[in-house]
Design a protein around this nucleic acid. Structure first.
Lengths: 333, 333
DNA sequence: TGCCGAGGAGAAAGCGATTTCACCGCTAGG
DNA sequence: CCTAGCGGTGAAATCGCTTTCTCCTCGGCA
């Protein structure tokens, strides 16, 4: 029977070059140690027949795909996108590709989704800031090798890249306090470790500055929620707003300006993350800067070590850098 | 000899359930037509042994991976990210995953990169706005099935999703002309079809409005270049700026505001794309709105049809919608 | 009762690489 | 001169699943 597919196989090349498939395989993978002349003949045949090894067959035979998965709650979120860009670039330099999966914020589906995509790849970079501890423990076991991004848990022992949101939030608050602000509004994010850590940072700050008051305003993770929070921010009487992240901050600023409340003259606003737009909006946004692309890159470093069977370096906790821009100023007299 | 890998295979399940591997395969894939009781027994065994089919083996046996590639010049560009999000979501709903590759604007590497990633996937969505015609023709032949995004070429006959930049640019210019502007600056993008089409649109506009003058200012694709163009924009004496895209527009606005030139009172600025931030910046950006997520979704529709061997619907050319916001106003008196 | 057709299930042949192991010829050492 | 060792090469097993093809059984009809 004729071959099902019409593609050139290693056997065709072997026949054409007058060698065995084993030799072709060795030449194609740079593991050939014999006569250079033989290798050249094989390469010539491959070129002539435009032979490209079938990746599916290779993956099968070698038991690995040279691809990793990247699972995020929301691919539309710029900070995850930057992580993805860094990850993809770093992995690409080592011949690995990144397959993406977006859980669309459906936290309960994440373990299944992760398991599914893991079966197609050699490993997974898990960005699951809101997954429950229990699910996380189970997931990291099933999914190994795993690298965790934007999520830390003492219960798991996989490489972890996180941001010290606690310190970041505290730093932002202290900075505002230093400008003279005493009444703050915190526009919260969705429940999860990120939000909790910011709250811890604010608690640290309150301990440090007993004269400060922080009003908590419900928010979310996107700019729409920031806009929606503007009214309550105004009602709070705060002179400084700490937003969950840059997206929310952008929404808050937008909402305030729409209501003709000047920023920062009347109310100062800070974000978190330092997404690319933060510096370009008007007023440019004071924020806690996190190098998300580096985070993606380091995630790959850790992953690559794991895949090679090495023990990767320690977890890293990024210290956000206070990036002072124009959205903050002393409170109105 | 003991099995190399310790994972449960279809044979284990077959033995456990007292049936043949063929039956297990049929049950797992919903192609089993025999006794429901047998199917249930197989499912029970699979559950008990926590059996998951080896995807590499499946891909190999079936000759397909259920994954598609998405090649972009720059994963950090928000408009591509939105396309990716839409594509990934739509494909995911049909059980397909998206593998990303970023050419990092290295146009000459794109054909090779595309070929490499194509071998790992069943198809590729190619976003190559700057690839040469010749390379494009060759690439689309080698890569089939292919869907082209943000790139049209009469020389290829693959499904294509594009934006009518020409009409979009003309619409923006006419709108500004209607506001009373007569002297325009166009901050150009990187050479490529996108830029060329905007130029055509501006030429259409000039034919329509002979009293208008357009000064061309070199730019780029990112906000930095927009900022950098601000001085030359000022020097041009233009009262209205058409920027290559939103990113550039954001940079231009930022640059102008930094130089204390009020937007839109002194100079109006427009973008192109309507990225999520356009509505939140201050002033909010007047732009030609393109539903990039829908574009990604439709790209998947076309691709899915292609994969199933159907003939997909016609190419679509999105007509950008003029989105009037606050960055534009009549010229100063 | 006998035969035929249909349908359920298994045996086995791929899929296309990698990789182990065996073989062969040559060289060097006893 | 014989043999042990080694480098170069090929034969063949292997990876785990899908799918075809065959076989067997059972029911219906003459």
């Amino acid at each position: 029977m004729a071959r099902r597919s019409s593609a050139i196989t290693i056997a065709d090349v072997a026949k054409h070059a007058g060698v065995s498939p084993a030799t072709v395989s060795r030449v194609m993978n740079g593991r050939f140690l014999g006569e250079p002349e033989v290798a050249e003949r094989v390469r010539a045949s491959a070129r002539e027949l435009s032979y490209w090894p079938n990746q599916r067959a290779r993956s099968f035979a070698m038991g690995q795909t040279n691809a990793i998965a990247f699972l995020v709650p929301d691919l539309a979120n710029p900070s995850f996108q930057v992580v993805l860009a860094g990850l993809s670039k770093a992995a690409g330099d080592d011949g690995y590709r990144v397959m993406v999966a977006d859980s669309a914020e459906a936290v309960e589906d994440e373990p299944l989704l992760a398991a599914e995509i893991r079966r197609r790849c050699d490993a997974v970079v898990l960005c699951a800031p809101r997954m429950s501890e229990a699910a996380l423990v189970q997931a990291t076991e099933m999914l190994a090798p795993v690298v965790l991004v934007h999520r830390f848990s003492p219960a798991v022992s996989v490489p972890t890249l996180t941001v010290d949101s606690r310190q970041g939030a505290e730093g932002l608050a202290r900075y505002l306090h230093g400008l003279g602000h005493r009444r703050f509004a915190y526009v919260a994010g969705p429940s999860g470790v990120a939000n909790e850590n910011r709250l811890r940072g604010l608690a640290d700050f309150e301990a440090f500055a007993p004269d400060a008051q922080i009003v908590h305003v419900p928010g979310g993770a996107g700019s729409e929620q920031g806009v929606a929070a503007a009214d309550e921010v105004l009602r709070s009487g705060a002179t400084a707003v700490l937003a969950f992240n840059d997206l929310v901050a952008i929404g808050v600023v937008h909402g305030l300006l729409e209501r003709e409340v000047p920023v920062p003259e009347q109310i100062s606003v800070t974000g978190f993350d330092d997404i690319p737009f933060a510096r370009y909006m008007a007023p440019s946004l004071t924020t806690a800067s996190v190098p998300q692309d580096v985070l993606g890159e380091l995630a790959w470093n850790r992953m690559h070590a794991l895949i090679r069977g090495e023990t990767p370096e320690h977890n890293v906790i990024f210290q956000p850098r206070l990036e002072v821009r124009r959205s903050t100023a002393p409170p109105p007299a």
